[in-house]
């Protein structure tokens, strides 16, 4: 049987945060979380494909203990198994270390056909983890999948889009695909799915289960280091105008300097 692995990330419900003007720190009214939207579409793409090809769908998340919630949701949608990668050793991992942990989990799960990633996470906006896992495993990748056309044996026929460039490719499995919100509608979890999910266990793996040395992942091992975070300096000296003619003057001046 084929095996599809879907990666889901728990992200803050809103990235709209306020800055405390005195302490210059983030004020988050609450710590509500959600499953990253693109990742749910990745799950949907895997479940849709399963209908045609038959497959086991394994949902994987890396994160704190609370990330079990996104895996519960994945089980309700219809994933067959769920694995949470959680350990203090993973905290502070950048995209390279994250992709190392995920690639190690893929190796442990084994015998996979397609890895499904959301195109990007709304809290990091990097769009790097999927292609980095593909690179770590040395498998081909479909960045910005538009649609899966068909599966022919070990080959996947897919449409991809890189800006203005549209390609149809045949790609050999195992491979990785990156899915975004533009890929269509999400189905709703069914009552039977919800009931089944109640009975399912979420497997939990740490660095030992992945045969990883705790020193090669996490904050210290990450190639990139955040050295500081600052409130952007946007306060400019503003000149107030009082009529349309002063706007026209500025435009005139700009047009003159351009010609």
């Amino acid at each position: 049987m084929k095996r599809y692995i879907v990666f889901l990330k728990q992200v803050p419900r809103s990235t709209r945060v306020e800055i405390d003007p005195v302490t210059k720190t983030l004020k988050r009214s609450s710590a509500l979380t959600q499953t990253n939207p693109d990742d749910l579409h990745a799950l949907q793409a895997a479940l849709d494909l399963r209908q045609n090809t038959g497959a086991e769908v394994v949902a994987v998340s890396m994160g704190p203990a609370s990330a079990e919630a996104v895996l519960r949701e994945a089980l309700q949608y219809g994933a067959d198994r769920a694995v949470l990668l959680s350990s203090p050793a993973f905290a502070g991992s950048d995209t390279w270390c994250t992709s190392l942990v995920l690639a190690s989990a893929v190796r442990r799960i084994g015998d996979y056909d397609i890895l499904f990633f959301g195109r990007m996470a709304i809290d990091g906006d990097t769009a790097q983890v999927g292609p980095e896992v593909a690179g770590q495993l040395d498998i081909p990748q479909v960045t910005c999948l538009s649609s899966i056309h068909e599966v022919k044996g070990n080959w996947l026929v897919a449409d991809k889009k890189a800006g203005s460039l549209l390609q149809r490719v045949e790609i050999e499995t195992p491979c990785a695909v990156m899915v975004s919100r533009e890929n269509g509608e999400l189905a709703c979890p069914t009552l039977s799915g919800w009931r089944r999910a109640q009975r399912q266990e979420v497997i939990r793996w740490d660095e030992g289960d992945l045969q990883l040395d705790g020193k090669v992942v996490g904050l210290y091992a990450s190639p990139t280091k955040v050295v500081s975070t600052d409130v952007p300096q946007t306060a400019k000296e503003i000149r107030w105008l009082s009529s349309g003619s002063s706007v026209a003057e500025i435009i005139d001046k700009c047009v003159d300097s351009l010609s």
Binding site: W96, A127, P131, E132, A134, G135, C144
Partner: peptide
């Protein structure tokens, strides 16, 4: 984006 991420993984460096 996709190209540079794949390269960073292969080069084992930060991006």
């Amino acid at each position: 984006r996709g190209l540079s991420a794949r390269m960073a993984a292969l080069l084992q460096t930060g991006l």
